[in-house]
Simulated assay, not measured.
Amino acid sequence: MIDDIAVFDANDIENHIEALGALLHACVHDGASIGFVLPFSRRESEDFWSRNVLPAIREGRRRLLVIRKNGCIAGTGQLDFDTPPNQPHRAEIRKLMVHPDFRRQGIARALMVELENIAFHLGRGLITLDTRTGDKAEPLYTALGYHTAGIIPGYCRDPLKDHLDPTTIMYKTI
């Protein structure tokens, strides 16, 4: 059972930087294709939160959702709505992560549903995301009503080995 789901503000991020860093570090070391490759240190994990996410949250360009389970940060997801003037109707899901110890418990689904609710309340009717083609999350996105726009071959480096993976670009109208 999920303890709670919360929107983290800048102070929350600063107060939980080590736990957020531990989540990202564990996910990357488990093979998650979320922008990082091995070797990948805890310090680099914490730097991502402080240098990338924190400024976007402070400037009101992104929302960060956090799910706790058993008192631990079990998962996070970001909604980026920093779009150009011709795309005020769109938002992007970024860095959906669930700690390997908490997978297959409905956390990713709960994060996605709440991110969609936030997008709707912000007046964003189109949500986009990308995921490594064939990844475990792809069937979840499809089950939630996301459609495949296309696949880009050789899009990103695999986090664990020297190999380029394709990515699937997906979207949903809400």
Rank of each mutant, 00 (worst) to 15 (best):
M1D: 10
I2W: 04
D3Q: 09
D3R: 06
D4L: 13
A6T: 14
V7K: 12
V7E: 13
F8D: 00
D9R: 08
H16C: 04
H16D: 08
H16N: 15
L20I: 03
A26T: 09
H29M: 04
H29T: 06
S33R: 05
S33I: 09
F40H: 15
R42Y: 09
E44H: 03
S45A: 12
E46F: 02
D47W: 04
F48W: 13
S50H: 11
S50Q: 14
R51D: 14
P55A: 11
P55S: 09
I57F: 05
R58C: 07
R58Q: 14
E59D: 13
E59K: 12
E59N: 12
G60L: 02
R62F: 01
V66Y: 01
G71F: 06
A74M: 03
G75F: 00
T76M: 05
T76C: 11
G77M: 05
L79Q: 00
L79Y: 00
F81G: 01
T83Y: 11
N86W: 08
P88C: 11
A91P: 00
E92D: 12
E92M: 11
I93S: 00
I93A: 01
R94T: 03
K95D: 05
L96C: 05
M97S: 04
M97I: 07
H99N: 09
H99P: 00
P100G: 08
F102Y: 15
R103S: 05
R103D: 02
Q105D: 09
G106C: 03
I107H: 00
I107Y: 01
A108G: 14
R109C: 09
R109V: 05
L111C: 03
L111G: 03
V113Y: 12
E114H: 13
E116F: 05
N117F: 10
N117E: 14
I118L: 14
I118Q: 10
A119Q: 07
F120W: 15
L122Q: 11
L122K: 12
T131S: 10
R132N: 10
R132T: 15
R132L: 09
G134D: 02
G134C: 01
K136R: 11
A137M: 03
A137H: 02
E138P: 05
P139V: 09
T142L: 14
T142V: 14
T142H: 13
L144E: 15
G145A: 06
Y146F: 15
Y146S: 04
H147W: 11
T148P: 02
A149M: 15
I151H: 10
P153W: 06
C156H: 07
R157Y: 06
P159G: 10
L164H: 10
P166E: 01
T173D: 09
